[in-house]
Design a protein around this nucleic acid. Structure first.
Lengths: 200, 200
DNA sequence: CTGTATACTATACATGAGCATAGGAGCCCA
DNA sequence: TGGGCTCCTATGCTCATGTATAGTATACAG
């Protein structure tokens, strides 16, 4: 593939960002507006990108930009299912929760142990550096050690908390002073936190 | 999510197939043509799909269909170099800092923009949910916007801080009350924070 | 010096495309 | 029986959008 000029790289980057944000490509005019240039200016850039093999366009169709992505090399990663925000009362592994799969580095996944990922919602674990919107990578397990951060099911609700066994009860401890610990005798552990992933 | 009628499922399937073939979504008219129905017929179907939460559309924009549950596909990954703990005074990109490569989801990597990863050391960014030992994924860049978290080089030291431009100086702000902001006129930005990865 | 590529502006035009109004027919539920 | 959904037609408005023509300015290779 031919080299791009600095400006052409900017345009290509814009298309990537736009696609990332909207999941459909920009129009010629939106591209022009993004760079404060004329419509024809943007149009010519798109044609240049097509000529150089970085994108494909279709005639007379709006937003008809396809990225020509270079082939990816094989990488040591594992795909695990990303379950959405867990609604209370719904079985966590139900199909309806399934969002997509995400790739995580293979080395954090213990062999042959199923893992899954969850969107974190709420600020109850900020003290442990876990923010709302983070993706938590969970090792499926029905046991945990004292102090582990676990995904626990209690009374129809799924939460991410630090787990402690006390004399005759369990304690689920948030990492945020605004949340009181939860004491219960009846809880099911769904998995242990193995990783956190956040995107800015 | 509400149940779809048989016809609505057909329409949704068509959108999936179209996206798979073209990598951009169909127009209302293309959808209508595919089913040999009127434009309004297709339009109403799309609105029904949106009402039931299966797609998202934007007003007055062509092809502005976003799938709420994207088609099941493995997320592609890219390998980026993981540089070790950065020792003061050492050039950050020197070979000796190179540890290994790590895989990160491709969608957070802007195309053709080089990225690298760093081990975070210290607790100066705990307020932003960034802990010691985390891996920071950085987009290489020598500029940043106000409020971005950046990797900056100042006087032989490399730090991760929130970046602000003030009248005649830069402010590097930790996210931890125990650290005072750093003011300087002389600093080099090495990159912008794009992701955080943590392993337990 | 000239041809070729880049990077634009300004204007224009046909048609693509979203969206609306005004219907009709069939279905299920209460 | 009637109201509310689904699924559809036909027609039309308005603005969005791809594409074209014509021109300016700059840089670079031969």
């Amino acid at each position: 593939m031919k080299d791009l000029t600095a400006r052409q790289k900017e345009i290509l980057t814009f298309i990537h960002e736009y696609l990332h944000d909207n999941s459909y490509p920009p129009t010629v005019r939106e591209t022009a507006r993004a760079f404060s240039i004329s419509v024809k200016g943007a149009y010519d850039h798109l044609k240049a990108l097509e000529r150089k093999g970085y994108i494909k366009t279709s005639e007379k169709r709006s937003r008809a930009i396809e990225l020509v992505t270079p082939p990816e090399s094989d990488t040591p990663v594992v795909q695990i299912p990303l379950l959405g925000e867990i609604a209370a009362g719904r079985p966590i592994f139900a199909d309806e929760n399934f969002e997509r799969t995400i790739a995580v580095p293979a080395d954090i996944i213990k062999n042959r142990v199923p893992h899954f990922a969850l969107h974190v919602k709420g600020d109850s674990m900020v003290g442990a550096g876990i923010l709302s919107g983070d993706i938590a990578i969970i090792e499926q397990s029905d046991t945990a050690k004292n102090g582990d951060i676990v995904v626990a099911l209690l009374e129809e609700t799924v939460t991410l908390k630090r787990f402690f066994i006390e004399n005759n009860r369990y304690r689920l401890q948030a990492e945020n002073p605004r949340y009181a610990p939860i004491y219960t005798q009846d809880l099911r552990i769904l998995g242990r936190l193995r990783g956190i992933y956040r995107s800015y």
